[in-house]
Simulated scan of single mutants.
Amino acid sequence: MATVAEYLLPRPYERWAVLAGDELTEPAPPVPAAKRRWLYRHGFRARAAHLYDFETYGPEEYLSDAQRYVGAYYLNGAWRDAIDNKLLCHLLLAEFDEHRPSVYGLLRGSRLHPIDEETVPTPDGGPGGRLLGRTAGPASSIPDGADWVLERLDRERLVCKRFRGGSGKQVLILASEGGGYTINGEPCTEDELRGRLDGLDEYLVTEYVRQASYAAAVYPGSVNTMRVLTMYDEEAGEAFVPIATHRFGTRRSGALDNFSQGGLSVGVDRETGRLSRGIQYLPPERPEEFERHPDTGEAITGRTVPGWAAIKADLLAIADRLSYIPYIGWDVVVTAEGDFSIIEANNNTSALIQVHEPLLREKRTRRFYERHGVL
């Protein structure tokens, strides 16, 4: 119903339908009716009762779900589609190639349409063409997707993900292990893998990014990413970071690190890169806090992201360069001290990022949202 409403209702009412649809269909915590009514009056979904510290902070210090779903969604104007489209975003970041994983191609109609041409040879051994413009050679020269992927898996892991979408939904991590194959860590046969690949459409095939040792030590079963939010301050003429978190996978989240699927969300001190406690939340259960990883026992609280100052400086330089897109949620993998890869960028960021601290406590952040009509 929410999807239909997005097409039928005028802006911004369709976003209210999406908010209502998510609240009605996603797992919700048991919240008393009076508390739920209070939350709804202030623009929050029921889950906020468990995630936000309303005893310490007032509701006005949090970016509400209504403000996030409606106002913040439109903040980037026409550029929101370019940011949320993973292929267009990859091309938009061409200037910063050292921070981009390779995108080998687009799976469509069982074929792999090359994008980063130097990486995808055609069946006759010649160079692959680019997606933009005409692909070199006849249609028959475009590689068979399953054949190309299986051949490539002999050399490296691969990631398949829809060119749109978020929250780790429909992400496949493919590997060749012990003479067989795995999809998101689950064993499968070659025929099963081929069947899965043949069923994919509009999926990007990308490089699998290797994380730095500190992140692998905490949890090696997933690539553990950071979500860093940047805002462009037009008055000061510079970008800034209002909030950052680190995510770590768990046995419950499988091969992915997403908070919505059972991963840990960890607060990051924006000045020092020091990690705080981890929080895991799968409603209707209550959130749990961890100073050590619940599966590996490795310390989380007190660790520091290696080279955080350099990472933040480089991200801010990119955000300054893209100042016409003032609001970006970056998903990055730290690959070495002071170095990182941008897995994707997001037009919006989940309000759940505030589980560690309210976004609107700082005047600069509040002014940004006010200037753009979100508050």
Score class of each variant (00 low, 15 high):
residue 115 I to V: 15
residue 24 L to K: 06
residue 48 A to N: 08
residue 23 E to Y: 09
residue 201 D to R: 00
residue 294 P to I: 09
residue 2 A to W: 01
residue 218 V to W: 01
residue 294 P to K: 07
residue 34 A to G: 00
residue 123 P to V: 05
residue 363 K to N: 07
residue 230 T to C: 05
residue 184 N to P: 08
residue 75 L to N: 01
residue 374 V to I: 05
residue 99 H to G: 02
residue 250 T to W: 12
residue 85 N to G: 05
residue 193 L to H: 05
residue 57 Y to H: 06
residue 275 L to F: 11
residue 169 K to R: 08
residue 242 P to G: 03
residue 226 M to Y: 06
residue 58 G to M: 00
residue 153 L to M: 13
residue 234 E to G: 09
residue 354 Q to T: 13
residue 230 T to K: 01
residue 144 D to P: 15
residue 109 G to W: 06
residue 151 E to R: 15
residue 38 W to E: 08
residue 132 L to P: 12
residue 225 T to V: 07
residue 4 V to R: 13
residue 305 V to L: 15
residue 256 L to A: 07
residue 99 H to K: 10
residue 31 V to K: 04
residue 275 L to M: 11
residue 234 E to M: 09
residue 350 S to K: 10
residue 132 L to V: 07
residue 53 D to F: 02
residue 311 I to R: 07
residue 213 S to D: 12
residue 205 V to N: 05
residue 84 D to F: 12
residue 207 E to Y: 08
residue 248 F to P: 01
residue 266 V to K: 02
residue 344 E to P: 07
residue 199 G to N: 06
residue 208 Y to T: 01
residue 275 L to T: 07
residue 214 Y to C: 03
residue 58 G to L: 01
residue 257 D to E: 11
residue 207 E to N: 13
residue 157 R to A: 11
residue 329 G to Q: 08
residue 69 Y to S: 05
residue 171 V to P: 05
residue 289 E to A: 05
residue 296 T to R: 06
residue 332 V to L: 13
residue 271 E to I: 12
residue 230 T to P: 05
residue 10 P to K: 01
residue 158 L to C: 09
residue 287 P to L: 00
residue 272 T to R: 12
residue 342 I to P: 03
residue 239 A to F: 11
residue 215 A to N: 03
residue 176 S to I: 00
residue 208 Y to I: 03
residue 136 A to Q: 11
residue 83 I to L: 10
residue 328 I to T: 15
residue 84 D to A: 09
residue 4 V to A: 14
residue 69 Y to E: 14
residue 104 Y to K: 05
residue 172 L to W: 05
residue 72 A to R: 09
residue 146 A to Y: 13
residue 194 R to W: 05
residue 367 R to M: 08
residue 206 T to M: 10
residue 112 L to A: 13
residue 152 R to K: 13
residue 230 T to N: 10
residue 338 G to I: 08
residue 25 T to K: 12
residue 71 G to A: 04
residue 64 S to E: 14
residue 1 M to A: 10
residue 343 I to V: 15
residue 323 S to C: 13
residue 316 L to F: 04
residue 209 V to H: 03
residue 245 T to P: 00
residue 373 G to W: 03
residue 324 Y to G: 02
residue 54 F to S: 02
residue 204 L to D: 01
residue 315 L to P: 09
residue 111 R to Y: 06
residue 182 T to N: 00
residue 157 R to H: 15
residue 86 K to P: 15
residue 160 C to P: 08
residue 189 T to D: 02
residue 318 I to F: 03
residue 372 H to G: 00
residue 91 L to P: 09
residue 77 G to L: 05
residue 185 G to N: 01
residue 110 S to M: 12
residue 6 E to G: 03
residue 127 P to R: 15
residue 351 A to L: 04
residue 259 F to P: 08
residue 38 W to V: 00
residue 165 G to K: 10
residue 201 D to A: 02
residue 110 S to L: 10
residue 64 S to W: 10
residue 41 R to G: 03
residue 74 Y to K: 06
residue 78 A to S: 12
residue 128 G to C: 06
residue 305 V to H: 13
residue 347 N to G: 15
residue 200 L to Y: 09
residue 135 T to W: 03
residue 87 L to D: 10
residue 334 V to E: 15
residue 157 R to M: 08
residue 78 A to W: 13
residue 156 E to S: 11
residue 28 A to R: 07
residue 366 R to H: 14
